[in-house]
Design a protein around this nucleic acid. Structure first.
Lengths: 109, 109
DNA sequence: CTATATCTTCTACAAAGCAGAACAAATCGG
DNA sequence: CCGATTTGTTCTGCTTTGTAGAAGATATAG
């Protein structure tokens, strides 16, 4: 199997998981993306991305315990797999390589 | 109309056009992506991306003249529009913002 | 218990990505 | 001239990603 190409949202979700560490679960991922990129996704969008990433083996999930707060039910926590890390790196690398050297005023990443 | 979200390939194609300047046309775009990212797309993929970007007003095209070489027929040259530049910037910015601070060994763009 | 908050899944469709074949137009070499 | 070859683009059809909205499942609060 050739090493998975990531869509743009998949990249963002993986990065969000990376940032969040232990706290990476659906709702938090969505919030992280919203606050950092001003992109207000629906929950459905985020969860389908997560599900698909897991199906491709790029992330893994474990169920947490309920927390003692209003509506604090079990969360599904996600972590990036080795394959996921590689795929993300490849993807970011591609963009970086293409963007490098393009006029600085352009917001070159 | 809300300011167009770009797919991953669309980003790469826009960046390729930016790099190529005057020489931005289908075949060259494909080659640029191939050499810089080792991603060997089919011509079909590249051209559909270009067509869709144009339909969304993110690039413009003009027809060139035939060149005096074996099979040197007219090329369709592309340039990025203002809207295209904005969309690209937004997109790159989102990824950069999400990637910033993630362990440097990660190939953070 | 029933209201309300948090979190996840389901359902359905639109957009983007992809390849392979077909098509078009140019030069080359006999 | 004219078939072979090269460069470049379009067409056709399918797969993968992206998206939202509603429904479902548990939790605490009152």
């Amino acid at each position: 199997m050739p090493p998975a190409n990531l869509g743009e949202l998949e990249q963002l979700v993986l990065l969000a998981i990376a940032r969040l560490g232990e706290d990476a679960y659906g709702v938090a991922v969505r919030k992280q993306i919203a606050t950092r990129t001003r992109r207000e996704l629906s929950f459905g969008s985020v969860y389908t991305a997560l599900t698909r990433l897991e199906a491709k083996g790029l992330v893994a999930s474990r169920l947490g315990e309920p927390t003692a707060e209003r509506g604090g039910r079990r969360k599904k926590h996600y972590t990036i797999s080795a394959a996921g890390r590689r795929a993300l790196q490849r993807s970011l690398n591609a963009i970086r390589t293409m963007a490098r050297g393009i006029d600085a005023s352009w917001g070159t990443p």
